[in-house]
Amino acid sequence: MSDDKTTHFGYKQVPVEEKSSHVRAVFDSVASRYDLMNDLMSLGIHRLWKRYTIELAGVRRGQRVLDLAGGTGDLASRFARITGPEGQVVLTDINAAMLTMGRDRLLDQGLAVNLLYAQVNAETQPFPDGYFDCVTIGFGLRNVTHKQKALAEMYRVLKPGGRALVLEFSHPTSQPLAKAYDLYSFSVLPALGRLITSDADSYRYLAESIRMHPDQETLRGMMAAAGFERCEYFNLTGGIVAIHRGYRL
């Protein structure tokens, strides 16, 4: 266990105040080829995980959606098409390089009217209470230093009746799959990282940070502790990824 002054960065312990700068360095390094790497690493399955997130979000025309750690805007691009001109989608990321990539990509898709961008730390969100109908964080929560704080903020900015979705790597539910997955993420992933972004360390960090992330039940408990109700989770691809959903009622 870490004491109060340090936190985990992958398997390493680093001072709490330094974690975000380490995470920033990782994403600065991979930003330009993030989409390509996602496709290669997940064999394209991340698109299906994101589709499932959209299905569970059930966002309607005219609603307001906050996409935290939105990276290159995969979720925001779909949300923006659903909410339409009367709605609003705010794409945020703590990392300027990723956010710029996301903004360029969405502009290239012709999406502009209802999209806003902000460089935001999920732990301290600059939005009023009860503003959004839906808040999502896709593959971002595990990089946040104080996860409980981020969940509390997600709860705060939601309207009553609003829902939060956390799409994140989780823990495989079966032993054989877990073994194969370990082999894949500690051997194949860093090798792919070296080939494509010349940066094996960043991808080793990704693999390690996934192992350090709370498992399905723990995260559900954390969401309930943040105030969310009707918390549930959906395992995808044998638990390699899970979507947690909770409502502010």
Partner: peptide
């Protein structure tokens, strides 16, 4: 754009959801 249209196939019970947008549909 953004309207939610569901097709339900009788006898199978499953649905297809179409959400139109400016340049096509999202289908779930």
């Amino acid at each position: 754009a953004g309207r939610l249209i569901a097709l339900e196939f009788k006898g199978f019970g499953n649905r297809l959801y179409f959400i139109p947008g400016a340049e096509g549909f999202q289908i779930y």
